[in-house]
Design a protein around this nucleic acid. Structure first.
Lengths: 198, 198
DNA sequence: AAGTATCCGGAGCGCTGCTCCGCTTTGCCA
DNA sequence: TGGCAAAGCGGAGCAGCGCTCCGGATACTT
């Protein structure tokens, strides 16, 4: 699941059939392994599960970030596309923002270790960081702008900062019931609201 | 600096002088290395800098968390002790809370990688996690209680959750000027405030 | 069917954390 | 002062990781 169409880059004429097949095999093996061992799982383990050599993985996904990105591509896309929809449908821009953040948080907390990878200062994950930003930052910015324009929140909030903050709050050990990132993020959004006209 | 008195555990009678000396040597070597390479620096590197074998380090500090804890012991202590002081001196409990959080954040952001270590789900750092909590959680709880009692903030905020949230916000790559954890934490505290009497 | 570009597998290197054990140093006691 | 356990030390060594390299296998083309 979540590992379907190879229509990533359309042309790529004359890629051999076995290569394409292997790419998909690796993708679904990785998806499975990520669920149980997190996105930090050893490449060897993914290779073993896919029944291929490690080089095959590195050939298709030079960086771990590329693999992670490919596995979660559809979900990132869905999150990005939900932004404008929510803005159009929600009662207020702030509500849209809140719902979108919920979506984003759900995505992060259900992928073991993703949030940690996102914030990692390791170069291995730089591309992941970048891809998330490329795709989601404009959406977040649009929501923030709309909310600011409607007077729901204070202006000048930086989308990058907000997204990284949310990502950061979602990380760490997730087995402690005393910590629920959603509560803190709700607090953060609360702090974002423009103090009601004095 | 930050690596002085051996009066950690008083008895320890009959520890050999060279062992004590080595302990201090390791401690200051670690402090130096942590500054440049973060708290994740290879043990070999610390051992080389201290001019001792790796086993010596492991003997004195079985876990990496023990080493980190020992290096920063005084600063954790200072942070813990500042809590009651601030509460007594600040204009309001909320102000005390804000100042204390500032102190905590300053501590975290100036120690490369400390915040990441704190949130790590690795067992290697569990002891560090625990030590921070043992020492600082009661302080944070006291500040929160005081602020709640004064009506400055909404009641029921969980100290553990707040501390972990702050720690989380302080982590990650620290070379991006677009991200300043202090701004988000200020927002979080803002969200904590009790909505002014309607 | 033959030729070639493409692709594959896993041995291998370098870097980690951590342990184990033969050797050295220290401090006590005669 | 000299001797001798006990305490302490160092680094070789093992295991697990990321990533690369290249001889050999495989799929397309003509």
């Amino acid at each position: 699941m979540t590992t379907d169409d190879p229509a990533g880059e359309p042309p790529s004429r004359s890629r051999r059939a076995d290569a394409l097949r292997n790419r998909e095999t690796v993708l679904s093996a990785a998806a499975e392994v990520f669920v149980t061992s997190g996105v930090d799982a050893p490449i060897r383990q993914i290779a073993a599960r896919a029944g291929v050599g490690m080089a095959t993985i590195y050939r298709h996904f030079p960086t771990r970030a590329d693999l992670v990105t490919a596995v979660y591509r559809h979900q990132i896309e869905a999150c990005a596309e939900a932004g404008p929809d929510l803005l159009a449908r929600a009662d207020s821009p702030f509500d849209a923002l809140r719902q979108w953040v919920d979506l984003f948080v759900d995505f992060l907390v259900t992928k073991h270790g993703l949030a940690d990878a996102l914030r990692s200062d390791s170069d291995r994950f730089a591309a992941l960081h970048d891809h998330f930003l490329d795709r989601l930052l404009p959406v977040c910015a649009q929501l923030l702008d709309a909310a600011a324009e409607a007077g729901d929140i204070r202006p000048g909030v930086q989308p990058y900062e907000l997204m990284r903050g949310i990502g950061n709050l979602c990380g760490g050990r997730d087995d402690d019931p005393r910590y629920d990132p959603r509560r803190l993020i709700a607090l953060l959004l609360q702090g974002l609201r423009r103090p009601h006209a004095s």
